[in-house]
Amino acid sequence: MLAAVGQLCSTNNVARNTALCVSLIRRAAAARCAILYLPEAADFIADAKEVPKLSEPLDTSEFVRRVRAQAKESAMWVGVGVHEKATQDKCYNTNLLISPDGEIAEAYRKLHLFDVKHSGPSGGIMMESNTTIPGDKLLDPVETPIGKIGLLTCYDLRFPEVGLSLRRRGAQVLCYPSAFTIKTGAPHWEVLLRARAIENQCYVLAPAQIGQHSPSRQTYGHAMIIDPWGGVLAQASDRPPKFPPPDEGDEDAGTFVMTEVDLDWLEQMRREMPLWEQRREDVYPIL
C-alpha cells in the first residue's frame, strides 16, 4: 500500500487553504495512494488574535466538510490537522483521520502544547496555550489499509511516552502532522522522527508546513516518511514557496511525497528484534 504525506504553506486565507488541500487529495488519489496525511493547522496559520474567529466546530467547518467530501470522492483515507473551536476564545489543535466514506474515524486533540521561550537574539516566545486547550486523552490506534495508525501532533514528538503507549496498544504507524519552527527544525526534526520510528519499530508519517505564512511566522518543512528501521524513505523539497503567496492558483505551495508501507517486513523485524518482549518490567515501569 502507498502512503503519502503532504507539505504546504497555509495562511490566514481559509478558502485558499481549503482549495490547496482538496487539490492535494485529488493528486494523491490519482497516484493511487491509500492515504494522504496533511499537516498540522492545514485549515489556517494566523496571528493569535485571529485564531478565535477563524476556528470552527468540526460539524460546521467548511474546511472539514470539503476535505471529508474529497476523501469520499477520492475513496481514500485522509489525515489532517485543524483548529477545532472549543470556547469563544480558544480551540483544540485536532488531528482528524477521515475514512474513504468521508466519515471522521477519529479526532485526536493535541496533548502537549508548544509553550517555549527561546533565549538569544534569534529567540522568541511562542505560547500555544494562549489560543489552545490541551486534549486529555490518548486514543487507540485506528485500523487502516497501511496498518494501525496512532495519532499524535507536532510537539508530541518530543515526548516518547505517548509513542510507546500507542505501540503498546498495537500501533504500526505513528503520525505527527506538524508545523515545526525554523529554529528547532534543523537540529531536531529528523532526529526525533527517526528516534520515534526506531524505538517503537513503527513507520512514521510526518507531514509538514513549510515557508513564510505571515510576516512573523515561518516553518521548517521537510515532510518525510520514516521506516521502522529508522530510514528516511521519502522527503519533500526544502524549497519554500514564494511569499506572499497568491490567493489562488498556487498549487506550487503544496506537494506530497509517497512510499510503500510493508507490514510483513515490519512484523518480521519485530520478531527478529523483539524489543517489546525484552523490556524489563521488573526494573522500570512499562507504559
Score class of each variant (00 low, 15 high):
138 L>H: 06
169 R>I: 10
170 G>H: 07
225 I>M: 11
156 D>A: 13
266 L>G: 02
24 L>D: 11
217 R>I: 02
147 G>H: 06
272 E>W: 10
264 D>G: 12
272 E>N: 14
252 D>V: 14
33 C>H: 14
20 L>Y: 06
218 Q>L: 05
224 M>I: 11
168 R>T: 11
16 R>N: 13
172 Q>H: 09
255 T>L: 04
66 R>E: 03
5 V>F: 01
22 V>Y: 00
104 I>S: 02
222 H>V: 08
135 G>Y: 03
21 C>Y: 04
216 S>D: 12
246 P>I: 11
36 L>W: 15
153 T>A: 12
285 P>Q: 10
49 K>N: 15
258 M>I: 04
259 T>P: 11
15 A>V: 13
103 E>F: 08
111 L>V: 08
257 V>W: 00
31 A>S: 06
51 V>G: 00
52 P>Q: 01
208 A>Y: 01
76 M>Q: 04
28 A>S: 13
270 R>H: 11
116 V>D: 11
80 V>C: 10
160 P>Y: 01
191 V>W: 06
163 G>P: 04
213 H>W: 03
83 H>S: 05
131 T>A: 01
7 Q>F: 01
170 G>I: 00
20 L>F: 07
68 R>Q: 11
50 E>H: 10
45 I>A: 08
224 M>G: 03
180 F>A: 05
147 G>F: 05
148 K>A: 01
163 G>H: 07
183 K>W: 10
221 G>K: 03
93 N>Q: 15
215 P>W: 04
247 D>R: 01
137 K>R: 04
152 L>Y: 04
95 N>F: 10
222 H>M: 04
259 T>R: 09
143 E>M: 02
198 I>C: 03
103 E>P: 01
66 R>I: 02
221 G>E: 06
157 L>D: 13
195 A>R: 13
218 Q>M: 05
74 S>N: 09
168 R>P: 00
182 I>Y: 12
263 L>C: 02
259 T>Y: 07
87 T>A: 12
170 G>R: 05
187 P>H: 07
181 T>C: 07
226 I>F: 03
71 A>Y: 01
92 Y>M: 10
198 I>V: 15
236 A>K: 11
97 L>G: 01
120 G>V: 15
279 R>F: 10
6 G>W: 09
19 A>K: 15
205 L>D: 00
100 P>C: 04
202 C>H: 13
77 W>I: 08
157 L>F: 02
217 R>F: 09
212 Q>H: 12
41 A>N: 10
138 L>I: 15
282 D>E: 09
58 L>C: 08
277 E>M: 11
12 N>E: 14
85 K>Y: 05
64 V>I: 08
44 F>W: 02
83 H>R: 09
150 G>V: 05
69 A>N: 02
199 E>Y: 00
25 I>L: 07
151 L>E: 00
2 L>R: 12
99 S>W: 00
162 V>Q: 00
228 P>D: 01
225 I>T: 12
179 A>D: 03
218 Q>Y: 09
144 T>S: 04
209 Q>W: 05
237 S>D: 03
83 H>F: 00
220 Y>P: 08
80 V>E: 10
17 N>L: 14
110 K>P: 00
183 K>V: 03
275 L>V: 15
114 F>R: 14
236 A>G: 09
174 L>E: 11
136 D>P: 03
